[in-house]
Design a protein around this nucleic acid. Structure first.
Lengths: 218, 218
DNA sequence: GCATATATTAACGTATACATTAAGCGCTGT
DNA sequence: ACAGCGCTTAATGTATACGTTAATATATGC
């Protein structure tokens, strides 16, 4: 991927995640090219990449549609993340890593603690993302890393909606700590099981929130 | 993705899977365009898609490199498939599907039996693919379906090497039948566990074969 | 007045022309 | 002879021009 194209990808991702390009909206190649001050060619290539990442769908003469993530989409995504992150946790434990190597995990947990103390949901969400991506990285499977990143991107957008609906996730960090401890102890099966349960609970919470949200919106 | 581009994608995939474009080889956009009798633009777009699918890597001035799949790549891929297919098996069982809905599964098993009786490894491989993709489809998670397809594509290439090295996989079909029966019985945990074990065994076998193959080649 | 056919147009899809860049090669100077 | 500089060149990356197609609107016939 060339420089300008990856810049375009980044710019479009930014616009999508910031909500400037809202889910469900259509955007013509020409308009996007004009906005980004480049020609249609790199825009087309960027859109193809984003389509591959599941962020947009390309439809002839309708432009690029920013893909809305439905409740069933979220369920699918969480199921994938549940399995793959749990494997990563098991693999990380199996690797018998030093405490130093696990620093990103414990650091994220600490930041979540602090954010919770300040009732700062945004900071908590960022640290939570960091925990999960650090966990996946420790699993040392590049395909899982890539897939998890794609899926997390889509989750992130839905969380914008739910972040302020839910109670402060104070108990969630107990889960994180337990998983990290199991990994440090080299107990693969415990790490896997705990993380699996953690993700399943998170899924259930999110789905419930989204459903009540949809009820309010309709 | 437009018609010509998807034709180009299909054509290139064909060339890759048939071995005409051998792993590790480099190919300039211009050459490929000439071969396919189209201009560079759709070729570029097709290559971007294939890069997203992990089949090629694009490097400026070196052309598109057909990605070789190393032993560690195969290990990564099998780990992903193991987790996601096992979840699909569990979900399929949970859905309490009728025997009619499970026909693709049992049909694939039957075809594998026949192929084994004829010692026809190619037919067996095709039916095995069918079994696994049918299983994933029954899981009813579009993301898992997509990921599994991508990963299977890469497995398929490596199997060309190993297909004639291994003993006829006569016992493998017992696994398949047990998984299918568990799904039919609606026993999710059994289906999951059995399939998980099946895939882990397959991974171990494949890795061993690839390693001895590399030894012979070096 | 409605339906159908046709014309217009706007957006996409493809080709091509042009700019950019990096790799290889040769030249020159020490 | 060797090192460093610059030129050539070939391939990519970007822009633009052109062909294609589908949607919309209008006109005509029933």
């Amino acid at each position: 991927m060339s420089k300008a194209v990856s810049q375009a990808v980044d710019a479009l991702r930014q616009l999508i995640f910031s909500g400037s390009l809202s889910p469900g909206s259509d955007h013509l190649e020409g308009e996007l090219a004009e906005q980004l001050k480049i020609s249609r060619t790199p825009v087309r290539e960027a859109l193809l990449v984003l389509e591959g990442q599941g962020l947009v769908t390309l439809r002839p003469r309708k432009g690029a549609r920013i893909r809305p993530v439905s409740t069933t989409d979220m369920a699918e995504i969480y199921d994938v993340l549940t399995e793959l992150e749990s494997l990563a946790a098991a693999d990380a434990a199996h690797a018998k890593l030093s405490r130093a190597r696990l620093w990103p995990l414990f650091d994220a947990i600490e930041r979540m603690d602090k954010a919770l103390a300040r009732k700062d949901r945004e900071s908590w969400a960022l640290a939570d993302d960091d925990f999960h991506s650090a966990l996946v990285a420790l699993g040392n499977n590049s395909r899982i890393t890539m897939i998890a990143q794609m899926m997390s991107d889509q989750v992130r957008r839905a969380r914008m909606v739910t972040l302020h609906m839910r109670p402060l996730p104070t108990r969630s960090n107990d889960d994180h700590r337990a998983v990290a401890d199991a990994i440090l102890a080299g107990d693969a099966e415990t790490a896997r099981t705990l993380h699996h349960a953690h993700r399943r609970a998170a899924k259930k919470m999110l789905i419930t929130l989204l459903e009540t949200h949809h009820l309010k919106c309709v």
